[in-house]
Design a protein around this nucleic acid. Structure first.
Lengths: 131, 131
DNA sequence: ACATTACTACGATGGCATTCGTATGTCAAG
DNA sequence: CTTGACATACGAATGCCATCGTAGTAATGT
């Protein structure tokens, strides 16, 4: 019987950055992750390593130790974690009002007309789906 | 000439909770804030006091020391801070995709049919506004 | 006048996040 | 075999967050 793993805690800023790399690259070595992150921000290799080790303890990532260079992967899919984060902020800062959240996002971060239309379409579809 | 205050940093969890009280109550004493928070969560008075003092240092709140019981108020309106937080999460976790953010929020936090309709209306209006 | 209550200030603690340096082990090239 | 490149492990420094206890002081009630 498959054991249900407990929900990992909310990732911190540095952890989220690493998760982003793992989500887009898939299974990766520490070096892979470090290289990707070092492009945008000077970072020591061991810093990434240590953070990944901690993330493994927390259950945010899984580690495959078969090879000498261990291989890491996110233990939860991107969508799941994003959902957690969105719901968390929704509660903490918006008292559960999805409308306020959307308003806040739109007013600070200008989105293109195209994305706006997409957004509306998505919402219409979603509304149909729950009818 | 009015000095432009620097943007206060992103509020922490405890700080956000206090800000929420200040936004809904307006100018408040430490006691007011404490009473409001203690309803949902056992908290020492001095914990709230200390946090408010730190928030004042950071510029998250303003303090009026005229009376013996100092009076605090949020230095930024709710909408402004919410915007910051939404935009921050949008960047950090959603690579700027407002659609993903909305999808995440909706999939974790079930919203009523009414709110969904409201949301759609709001989006339509917003779209008109930027045309 | 004295005791009680209400307030601020502040130090201290424990925990976590982030970062880095160093130690140590493995492997392959010369 | 020795060296250099590359890997993990891990201790430690630093700083912030959240919390609380204590001290000191002003106001209030008896």
């Amino acid at each position: 019987m498959a054991q249900k793993q407990p929900d990992p805690p909310r990732p911190t800023d540095a952890e989220l950055e690493i998760l982003t790399v793992l989500w887009s690259r898939g299974r990766s070595t520490v070096r892979d992750v470090h290289d990707a992150i070092a492009l945008r921000k000077p970072t020591q290799y061991t810093t990434v390593l240590k953070t990944l080790q901690i993330m493994a303890e927390k259950g945010l990532v899984r580690r495959d130790e078969e090879q000498r260079a261990h291989i890491y992967e996110a233990s939860r899919p991107r969508e799941w974690t994003q959902s957690q984060l969105a719901a968390d902020l929704l509660q903490r800062a918006f008292s559960g009002s999805a409308k306020s959240l959307l308003l806040g996002a739109l007013s600070a971060h200008k989105v293109s007309r195209e994305e706006l239309a997409e957004l509306r379409k998505f919402l219409e579809e979603y509304e149909k789906g729950t009818r």
